[in-house]
Structure formats: structure tokens, C-alpha cells
């Protein structure tokens, strides 16, 4: 459950961006649509605790983000969020399994090998566990990135333009993967995009 109230953000030498108040239920799936420069990424980063809140309040599962200091925010992110970015940025020198185990390691959680198997099976990648990242196709690498985002059982999955570089076929496939994986892990899914193709899969839209 995420609720925001009178959130706005001002970049240096730019006009203030005022965001609508949001109330996103647990396990809900939302699209954050808007043109370039409309503040999609800014709102996403504010919601994800990646950017410090200037005005207004954001409450995630009963925790006010503005009340956390830098290191508390790090811990909070590690335990509650899974992020997926346009470029997946996996560690090329490591195997799929090792990349996934980075998530609990960085978040300071216990490394659970069964969870790795579980998530890879959900994504149909169970047989790729020992492969190096550079041996994977682009589509497979993206699945690993999704697996990494959900590995710590986050309550919120945040994706920033996950499909903008993909063709129609792959776009719908990734969208389907994201929604099903979020459902299986009972996580809230928020996708920021200017890609209107995703509207077919996710009906809830926040328009900026």
C-alpha cells in the first residue's frame, strides 16, 4: 500500500513539478504514463526512495519515506523494493545464480539458494542457472534482471521503461512476465513508460 500526499519536486533552475496524490493498493498493478520531461522518472525515484523528498509525504506500507535517513533508506529499499531498469546491468563476469544472489547480499539479507531456483522456475530460466551473463540472449538477460528484482520478495516492484527498446512481440512478452511475476510474489507493480503498448496488459493508469 502506497499513499502520496501533495508531493512536488523542483529541480534547480526549473519550474516545480506537482504530482497528483496517489493511493496504490497492495499487489495493485499500475502504469505511470506521460511524455518525456513530465516527471515520470522523478516520481518513480521519489516512490522508490532513490530521490530525496522535497515536499509532501510518501507512505509505503506504513513507513514515511521522509522519516528515514540515508542508511535506513538503503535498508528499506533492499527489503521492500525491486527495481527493473531499461538497461539490465547484470554483472557480466558472474553466473546467473551469482547475479541473483547479489540482491540479498547487497540488501544484507540471507542468501537463499532455494529462492533462486524458485524465481528462475517462475521465469522459465531454471536450466540457465549456471550460465554466464555473456552467454545469454538479450531476452534471457532481461528475465534475469526481473528475477533479481523479485528475489528478495519485495512488496513493490518498480520498472522504468522496461520495454522501450523492445519490439512488439518481446514487449508483450516482458509485460506478461512482469505482471505474472508480480502476482506470484504478491507485489505491487508500478511501471513508468511512454510506451502505450503496455496499456493492453495493465489497465490502471496514472497519467502525468
Amino acid at each position: 500500500m502506497i499513499t502520496t500526499k501533495s508531493v512536488s519536486y523542483t529541480y534547480p533552475s526549473a519550474s516545480e513539478i506537482v504530482f497528483p496524490d496517489l493511493s496504490i493498493p497492495a499487489a495493485g498493478q499500475f502504469l505511470l504514463l506521460g511524455e518525456s520531461g513530465s516527471g515520470k522518472t522523478t516520481l518513480l525515484h521519489l516512490l522508490g526512495g532513490l530521490l530525496k523528498l522535497q515536499r509532501g509525504t510518501i507512505d509505503v506500507n506504513g513507513t514515511a519515506l521522509s522519516g528515514l535517513n540515508e542508511s535506513q533508506l538503503d535498508r528499506f529499499r533492499g527489503r521492500n523494493y525491486g527495481f527493473i531498469f531499461q538497461r539490465n546491468h547484470l554483472l557480466a563476469a558472474l553466473s546467473v545464480e551469482q547475479n541473483l544472489l547479489m540482491a540479498p547480499y547487497l540488501a544484507g539479507l540471507k542468501q537463499d539458494h532455494h529462492r533462486v531456483d524458485e524465481v528462475l522456475t517462475q521465469l522459465g530460466m531454471a536450466d540457465q542457472k549456471k550460465k554466464r551473463i555473456r552467454e545469454l540472449s538479450l531476452g534471457q538477460a532481461q528475465r534475469v534482471a526481473i528475477a533479481r528484482a523479485v528475489l528478495n520478495k519485495p512488496s513493490v516492484i518498480i520498472a522504468d521503461e522496461p520495454t522501450s527498446a523492445l519490439d512488439d512481440k518481446n514487449c508483450s512478452r516482458v509485460a506478461a512476465l512482469l505482471t505474472s511475476v508480480a502476482e506470484q510474489n504478491r507485489a505491487t507493480l508500478i511501471i513508468a513508460t511512454h510506451d502505450h503498448r503496455l496499456k493492453d496488459t495493465i489497465k490502471n493508469v496514472i497519467q502525468l
Partner: peptide, 16 residues
Amino acid sequence: RYDLAIMRSMGASRAK
């Protein structure tokens, strides 16, 4: 830089 930022987003502290 991007990798480091992603690690931060995954919950890594500055000290780590």
C-alpha cells in the same frame, strides 16, 4: 557508475 547506482538501489549501503 551505473552499476554502483543499481547496487545502491538494491539496498547496498555507502559503506558497502
